[in-house]
Simulated scan of single mutants.
Amino acid sequence: MSSHCHIGKTISSHWRPQALGLPFLSPYLQSLGSNFRHGANYATLASTVLLPNTSLFVTGISPFSLAIQLNQMKDFKARVIELQSHGMDHKTLPLPDVFGKSLYTFDIGQNDFTSNLAAIGISGVQQYLPKVASQIVATIKELYDDRARTFLVSNLAPIGCFPAFLTELPHNATDLDGSGCMISYNNAVAAYNFMLNQSLDNVRKLLPNATLIYVDTHAVKLELFQHPAAHGFKHGTKACCGTGGGAHNFNPQVFCGNSKVINGSTLTASACPNPQDYVSWDGIHLTEAANMALVHAILGGSYFYPSFPLGKLCHLHTIG
């Protein structure tokens, strides 16, 4: 990996490139004002690893699955090489040789897990989760064959702690731990994460020149949800931006920032005045403060498996 730490993102939601001295990465599909000099972000809202063309997937899932994002990356690389071969030095594009030096990050699979939990339950979802891990591994192999060498793969979050899922997924009081998180759903996530880690461990033996790192973001998020006060937060399983109040302040009929007339009354999901006190922003995503805590923990290096000295390979910058 080069010392300037170019990031070629496959998909990501939580990485903060400012810590590497880089600006936010431009979305690949953003046609105006994009600058891909330091990398590209292929992430889309509600994307999945597996193709969303089966009856397993509910509406609202992005058509840009991991396979589509991989093809977008390949197309982007081909265009960069073609332009450079014609002597066109674009200041907003990376140099062609940077693709082999880039850091490829994966943070995907959450929607494969959650999109049908309410309909088919944990056991139903677990039947196709091995395919999710296999597809991630296959994508890494394909990128490796295309000269990519450094990969960071994040595991799945403890969905049993998120206000949205605590509100929508069936459970009873006996399924809640001391912090109010759903035990059965978190156990299912932990089982998938173990399988993903084992899959990555197996593929390392096949890719001798690769640096393939499993990033345990799950452990950090679980710690924030279960012990918010220990990290400067006041609310773990309650959303900042929502409506309805209650233990979780989440209403699936009115998402953050929206208003809707329900039974003759107008409900508005608005932000709380003190988001820095919350782990969850809208019931589904973390707040900026929680993301900051997550990134600081990750960049510390203790959540990389195997150990990956990011602080030695890159000049890390203070983020605040």
Rank of each mutant, 00 (worst) to 15 (best):
T150F: 07
R79K: 13
Q127P: 05
C272I: 07
A210C: 12
S31W: 03
P130E: 01
S199P: 12
L294Y: 11
Q18A: 14
P228V: 13
I262M: 10
A247Q: 15
N209M: 13
L267A: 09
I108T: 00
I7W: 01
G60D: 09
P23S: 09
P130A: 00
Y144R: 08
L222V: 02
A269E: 02
A119P: 03
L310Y: 05
L152Y: 02
F36I: 00
H4L: 10
A190T: 12
G39E: 02
R79A: 15
H231L: 10
H248D: 06
D89W: 14
F165R: 08
L51T: 14
A46H: 12
M1G: 00
N263T: 11
F36W: 07
L66K: 06
P306N: 11
D277Y: 07
F255K: 13
S55F: 09
L83R: 14
H317S: 14
N263M: 12
L20W: 06
L129P: 03
A269Q: 06
F99V: 06
A239Y: 09
P163Y: 07
F36T: 00
S3T: 14
K91G: 03
H231C: 10
I183R: 10
M73G: 04
K131H: 14
M73V: 07
A269Y: 01
V132A: 02
A229D: 13
G246M: 05
S2G: 08
L212G: 00
D97R: 10
N172C: 01
I68V: 14
L310E: 07
D107L: 12
H4K: 10
G320I: 14
N263E: 10
A19D: 06
Q198M: 11
Q135Y: 04
L200T: 01
H227G: 03
L22D: 00
N53C: 11
L32Q: 12
Q135L: 13
V132I: 08
T44D: 03
Q226S: 15
P27T: 05
I213M: 07
A297G: 09
F304Y: 11
L129F: 03
G232H: 09
S62D: 07
S184W: 03
H235T: 10
L224M: 11
P208S: 11
W15E: 10
N249H: 12
Q69A: 06
F233L: 08
H38T: 07
P163N: 13
E223R: 15
